[in-house]
Design a protein around this nucleic acid. Structure first.
Lengths: 274, 274
DNA sequence: AGCTCTTATGAATCATTGA
DNA sequence: GTCAATGATTCATAAGAGC
């Protein structure tokens, strides 16, 4: 399948209004975190972050299909030796605007550099907030299954007495299990904790995430031919993965430097430049 | 050092007011989550959770030393196919009451129970919210350093009896295997992501956490002779670890069943019962 | 000690049915 | 309607025993 990409140079606050209603299946983005990357994006003061992001969130709501999903990669910074509250305030504000806060995935940055500060350790995780417009959204859980652990080979070889009957939960939750169901199973479902190393081959962008991150969510929430939007393209990781997986991409980038860089990651013939 | 424990039977809303001001070095607790444990604790409706917890948080603030730390183990449940907001609302409310939201650790539950639902995966993580009264609090980062390379798998895991014996025999006999590997290797500081399996030896309490969880925070935020408070004792995991590490413990439990059970985990001579 | 093998068990969520 | 009860779904880990 031929995937088509649109690359827009400019501020997403200007460009998002030009996109049609309910045309996007998945929004995956990692906006500039508050006061980070000040040298490149200017930096949004933490106290103004919600106010800055909400109009963008409203536009994202408009362009997303009713069955679509919005994944927001974000982490609050430390301000004045406290975790700032702009992320959790943003969640509450977006819910008031109609978004459903469906889930929160954790990205565990496996290879994060050891570090030590007087009052804290290395921050090795980021939030992947899932927002939806409706309770029933497109989701392809089978597309992100992972190989079953070595556990199964030994365990299933000979089933114990307990495994042959349904093992009822002891806490009265009604949640039991039947090991015999797993015979012949090759792949299992992941959890909401993603273990991924940070990208080592930094592409000159100060906040590159690994390709496995958008890949997981693109596979989980879209099928071939669907359209993925990233209003903060950066070095174009989401773009490259979408292209590789046969999804159309709409990408917006403020800075010409990154716009040019990302453009080179995909064939020009599959791409419309704005 | 002789560690002394106080065990109180009753509602922490009644018992906390009897504790003196600024007498606690660390509060580590896992309160009943909203609507969970309904069969045992009654269950607090999610919409009333903040209102229920805030008076308790105020008392905890009063009894904590200015240099002390409050670690709150909590996770929001799914209500109506959305993550409920009572946890993040509680963070904001506690900040308005004077608490500093210093850090958020993640507990990744490695062996979380399997499950698959139409619109979500297994929830495999919980929050460990760190609150403080002041920007400068007691912290002993060296006490939780781990060998480079395998942080959860080796050091932080609760040492079994065999491991302890092996560890000691190394000094005299030159025996010991894994411990010996550490010699000459660099110790590094952990991150704010804790990889621990949920406790397999369930003690009849449906929400037992592994001993390594309070152990990490007790070592990090207290020294021998300090006092640890857990207003929701449950099966007494915090109590047992505090006693083992030579910290005094003040523990409160609502249900006689768990109170009796926890009492048996420590020597009667080290314990005052209320 | 160091393997292998066995066994125990853990803060769930959603659709449907019944009161 | 609204709310409560019931049914269906499905692994990874650590401790301990045995050799």
């Amino acid at each position: 399948m031929m995937a088509k990409s649109e690359l827009h140079l400019g501020d997403c606050r200007d460009i998002l209004p030009t996109l049609p209603d309910e045309s996007i299946d998945l929004i995956f983005t990692s906006p500039p975190y508050a006061d980070q990357r000040k040298s490149t994006y200017g930096g949004i003061p933490p106290d103004e972050y919600v106010e800055w992001f909400l109009p963008i969130a409203d536009e994202l709501y408009r362009v997303l299909k009713p069955t679509g999903t919005f994944i927001l990669n974000i982490k609050e910074k430390v301000v004045n030796e406290e975790r700032h509250t702009y992320v959790i305030e943003l969640i509450l504000a977006m819910r008031r605007r109609g978004w459903l806060w469906t889930e929160e995935f954790i990205w565990h940055k496996k290879n994060s550099y050891p570090g030590k500060w007087p009052n804290r350790f290395r921050d090795a995780w980021e939030r992947l907030l899932q927002f939806n417009k409706a309770k029933h959204f497109k989701m392809f859980q089978d597309a992100v299954r992972v190989p079953i652990g070595g556990w199964a080979e030994t365990r299933l070889r000979r089933l114990s007495q307990n495994d042959l009957v349904r093992d009822e939960s002891r806490v009265g939750s009604g949640f039991g299990k039947r090991i015999a169901n797993w015979i012949g199973r090759q792949y299992v479902y992941p959890t909401n904790v993603l273990h991924l190393a940070t990208e080592c081959t930094n592409r000159g962008h100060s906040a590159a995430f690994p390709e496995a991150l958008p890949e997981f969510f693109i596979k989980l929430f879209t099928e071939e031919g669907d359209t993925v939007l990233d209003p903060f393209m950066g070095s174009g990781t989401t773009l490259a993965v979408a292209q590789r997986l046969g999804r159309n991409a709409i990408e917006i980038e403020l800075l010409p430097k990154y716009y040019e860089q990302a453009r080179k990651r995909i064939p020009l013939m599959d791409c419309t430049l704005f």
